[in-house]
Design a protein around this nucleic acid. Structure first.
Lengths: 158, 158
DNA sequence: CTCCATTGGTTCAGATTTGAACTAGTACTC
DNA sequence: GAGTACTAGTTCAAATCTGAACCAATGGAG
């Protein structure tokens, strides 16, 4: 039994192999997202976007980043980032600073509490990533996926 | 320069290769999701979850499915599905029927308008999937990804 | 048959996301 | 240096998502 939406009826659509890849990718992404969200909420009261913000800031020089740059990194709208930074500021994990070079700009800065929170939270989070994704892939698959996904990421970022 | 969160400081975390794979996967998933959402909204006024519901129903025998089963397929909470089915019903693309075998149950049924909408929308949607994902992968990568993702999907569904 | 644990869906409140204004500051252009 | 187009962030309203509480209906166990 073939799907209603395949290349049999229209060659411009996706053939069996392509559709299988897309479906598997999509399901995995959504299921994993749910697991991650659940774990982070339970372990640290963080959402996944919030966690990602902390990671990006921790990796940035001076533990700080401009709002727009951060939004692009986390792949979220500017308004969503504004909201989340406000939340994280309330929690004491991040602070806002005005940017010295550009009076319009705002720098999000990771606080010591934010750093501590990330260090406390990362192991449990990465354990989920490992348990449900990484540990099910061979080294070859891992490398294939990295090069392939980087290529698509390039395309998606234009 | 290595990331703050890697296996150098703690072997239980992820090494460079693993982290690279995870990051690339995550970014691609998020960026692609945004593109898809944008295209579907512009072309058909649908959200991605809504489109997925139509696809699942179209592929189901009798073009109908139980709410819970559908929710699991689309990977969304029961309440989110209730909400979306109501939206789709309002748009005339889906109808609710009481389940004959189980008075508690509800069947979501794809209407003719729903089928037509899907057939009209699918090409444009699949074109995006092809342009930003499929066309950037070799046949080998495609197959590797399918087997790998299916394995992780299994694990995630327990 | 009756009790009770389970399952299927809905409702509800609260949190989050998005794009569309809007404000403020920057940087060309002439 | 004035005028205008652009960039950076925030605010706002509307839509959506989630988990918890809830209401039926089912299905054993005794």
């Amino acid at each position: 039994m073939t799907s209603t939406l395949n290349a049999v009826t229209n060659p411009r659509w996706l053939d069996e192999t392509e559709m299988a890849a897309w479906r598997a990718f999509l399901s995995t992404a959504h299921l994993l997202e749910r697991r991650i969200e659940e774990q982070l909420k339970a372990a640290a009261g963080l959402t996944h976007p919030q966690y990602e913000i902390l990671v990006r800031l921790a990796d940035a020089p001076g533990r700080q980043m401009r709002m727009t740059e951060l939004a692009k990194g986390v792949i979220v709208s500017k308004s969503a980032l504004t909201y989340q930074i406000t939340q994280l500021e309330r929690a004491g994990l991040v602070e806002r600073t005005t940017c010295p070079e550009d009076d319009r700009g705002v720098l999000a800065v990771l606080t010591d509490a934010g750093t501590a929170c990330l260090e406390r939270t990362a192991p449990g989070h990465l354990e989920v990533v490992r348990e449900y994704l990484i540990d099910h892939l061979t080294r070859d698959e891992l490398e294939t996926m990295t090069t392939a996904m980087r290529r698509t990421e390039q395309a998606l970022r234009q």
